[in-house]
């Protein structure tokens, strides 16, 4: 069995920090784990940290979009943080603009973004 990516909890936010090379099976396991965790912990936000990811392909790009869609269905917002310039360029060249996925420069800004949108939601 392949390695699983740990899903950590900070308050009502789930943090997924991807530190390993992403194989297709790892990605599928992660989607499953994440969906389970969002429901189990009634999470409001998901932060995916890809600072350590140096190589992406279209499958990983689609994975990010899929996770975002799944989370949105479960009423959690997804923020992808720490994307490297090379990764961003690759995704653009692959024609994946990740519409619907929110992004932030680093983990701190990503958490701030979720916090901001939470307070914004309460105000309206």
């Amino acid at each position: 069995m392949t390695e699983r990516v740990p899903v950590l909890r900070i308050g009502d936010i789930l943090l997924v920090s991807i530190q390993v090379d992403l194989e297709d099976q790892t990605v599928l396991d992660l989607q499953e784990d994440l969906a389970d965790q969002i429901v189990a912990r009634s999470a409001r936000g998901v932060v995916i940290d890809i600072t350590a990811v140096e190589i992406v392909d279209s499958f990983v790009g689609r994975m990010l979009a899929t996770i975002a869609s799944i989370s949105r269905l479960l009423d959690a917002e997804t923020v992808v943080v720490g994307m490297r310039p090379a990764v961003a360029i690759t995704l653009v060249e692959l024609g994946l603009s990740l519409g619907g996925v929110r992004t932030a420069l680093d983990l701190e800004k990503g958490l701030a973004l979720l916090r901001r949108s939470a307070t914004g939601a309460e105000l309206t």
Partner: peptide, 12 residues
């Protein structure tokens, strides 16, 4: 457009 989309992907 490509440049703008790439910057967006990085969160800017």
């Amino acid at each position: 457009l490509k440049t703008v989309v790439a910057a967006r992907l990085m969160g800017a």
